[in-house]
Design a protein around this nucleic acid. Structure first.
Lengths: 248, 248
DNA sequence: CGACAACTTGACCATTATCAAGCAAGGTGG
DNA sequence: CCACCTTGCTTGATAATGGTCAAGTTGTCG
């Protein structure tokens, strides 16, 4: 049931031993002081330790809307999209899950959205029954569960502001900055490079725009010198202050 | 520290004794089976039992963005709005909290949004330090915490679809149905009556529209015979199937 | 009754969507 | 190795939804 340290290690640089000795009352005390933030990779590890690794090919479905909600997943590598579909085909991507993120939380019996692999990805699959049964006796796990689903809530809340009140330029700018924060690499001359795992259509469905508007906006930002697009899936953030102005 | 039963009683019809005898491993076992839904008022009680009642006047601030996050609140009566503001004054209301809802969750040291009383309201204020300290040793409380913040997440996720992909009519329709589900009263002839606690501006900022569009859309729905507006703050849902078609 | 806030309505405008080509990169078969 | 096809992306022209600005109306409260 437990997974190899080599797999877990990809989530973050915290060594597996770090959670080998659960504390008496878990992490709740630190949470009370607001001290859990500096250690944000830990909850993923605590949960991942209870599951088994699985891999999914690009564009394959991890689970579908309305399926029985049996598992929770932690991303080890790759990118996952969480989607909601409307009857007529309109799609909203609620989140892109990157390494260290968890998804598939439910209180009811069925998933309320589908999850698909944006790129080839490795996940840890944890049985919900195992997770919740243990949470009843293991405060550290209970805290980890709360922290992980709370992280989702925070992202969702930021996203609400974006979808409700931001312009197309602001949406794209915020998106690029968020990706940079979560997965970008910055070089010596302060240029951040991003590899976009997702298509323009994915970006559009995440940002509440059309594919054409996303494309036009990226072109515009490049004309302004704010970003460069060496290829359609690679972005260089040249002027972060201009992007931050858009992020507001 | 504990609040009077008469205050708690307004949240839901579950008597206070119901949680006087905590179960050995809390509610996690039920959660594992997806059985927590039928009992959704309980988490609010479990948390509220640790706090003290407070009241806020109409339009007063409960806490502000960036303030120290010391408390979590449970709504007993009235309506609370959770807001995010942008530098230039654009506002997004992330949620309206009704009796039984909890708000003010944070992992960090500061709130990331403000909360204001839409109508005069009674709340239970619970110290975060108390809550988290107890959660470490009380699995039932840990479960309640998770259930309450998870309920927020679910609402936020539904809202993402609304803001990202729905038309103005669909937004207003979904909003009315959601309010009806949470607070409406249906009479013998299947007409549901709603009392709107919030202004048109609040609705607009919640739905990602302008006040004018909200007003026009309501007028249009009334012309179609889908709703009636006996006064600007009272709505009768006359044709729920038409609304549900909009909800999709 | 008057003042003010909240709401509605109208006319016009802008941002973003839609529809339609065209282009570029990557893979396949001849 | 090159023509061909497919897929994903970009660009252009036009349309529509919802936003803006402005004027009225309703309702509430002193």
């Amino acid at each position: 049931m437990s997974i190899a340290p080599s797999v877990i290690a990809h989530i973050a640089p915290v060594p597996p031993q770090a959670y080998a000795h659960p504390m008496p009352s878990g992490r709740w005390n630190e949470m009370a002081k607001g001290a859990c933030t500096e250690d944000s990779a830990r909850p993923a590890h605590v949960v991942a330790a209870l599951g088994a690794p699985v891999t999914f090919a690009r564009n394959s479905e991890i689970f579908g809307d309305d399926q029985a909600a049996e598992n929770v997943y932690v991303v080890v590598s790759g990118v996952v999209r969480i989607c909601k579909l409307m009857g007529d085909g309109r799609r909203q991507i609620e989140a892109f899950c990157l390494p260290g993120d968890a998804f598939g939380w439910e209180t009811g019996e069925r998933y309320r959205f589908s999850a698909e692999a944006v790129s080839e990805c490795r996940l840890v699959r944890v049985k919900r029954s195992v997770l919740f049964a243990r949470a009843g006796t293991d405060p550290e796990l209970a805290c980890a569960l709360w922290a992980l689903s709370f992280a989702e809530l925070q992202r969702a809340q930021e996203h609400l502001l974006l979808l409700g009140r931001k312009t197309a330029q602001e949406r794209v700018g915020s998106f690029l900055l968020d990706l940079a924060r979560r997965s970008g690499t910055t070089n010596a001359s302060h240029v951040t490079e991003l590899q976009l795992a997702m298509s323009r259509q994915d970006m559009a469905d995440f940002l509440g725009l059309t594919i054409e508007t996303v494309s036009r906006t990226l072109t515009y930002l490049e004309e302004q010198g704010t970003i460069s697009l060496p290829s359609s899936r690679r972005v260089l953030l040249r002027d972060r202050s201009a992007l931050r102005r858009l992020d507001s």
